[in-house]
Amino acid sequence: MNKVAVFMKKVSGVMLVAMMLVTCLDVGGNIFGHPLLGSEEIVSLLAALLIAFTLPAAHQERAHIGVDMLYLRFSPRTKKINDSILCVITAIFFSLVSWECFKYAGDLKRIGQVTAVLELPIYYILYAVSAGCGFLSLVVVSQLLKIIREGSHE
């Protein structure tokens, strides 16, 4: 599980560097009268890939912040119940998002929708977003199993 999350994060890292380079190529080319037409589209699609593939690792590393004022006053037992319920909700939620993105990708493929300038197909990216959200819900499920076994994670 961890290995996959780390691998996905590495892919995202490559996307980040690519986003930077594509924009710089566009700016550099622009100075010499040859801007990279549609660089915005490439950057937007790379950004979507970047975020989608970072989702599982970001969740594992607790990047998303929550309000802990009340939580810190919970008893260990309450914490365990609270966290288990949250894991169930989150896992169901991101499975839904993943499934919907998968269906949406199919729709866009069928319709033939592409980006405005470069006419790049969008559905590939949506499959990636679907994979990112799907793997995120797997990560949450494994967290749930751990909580049930060992109690709440701090």
């Binding site: 980040l16 986003m19 930077m20 924009t23 915005e40 950057v43 937007s44 699609l45 790379l46 950004a47 979507a48 970047l50 975020i51 989608a52 839904l96 998002v97 919907e100 993105c101 269906k103 949406y104 990216i125 949506l126 977003v129 959200c133």
Partner: peptide, 25 residues
């Protein structure tokens, strides 16, 4: 359900927000 997938993808692939990773980098 459509709201979820469309909004999520729309924000992820928004050019206006693509500058966030670049500035943060």
């Amino acid at each position: 359900l459509a709201l979820l997938s469309r909004d999520m993808f729309d924000v992820f692939s928004s050019y206006g927000l693509a500058l966030v990773p670049l500035f943060v980098f």
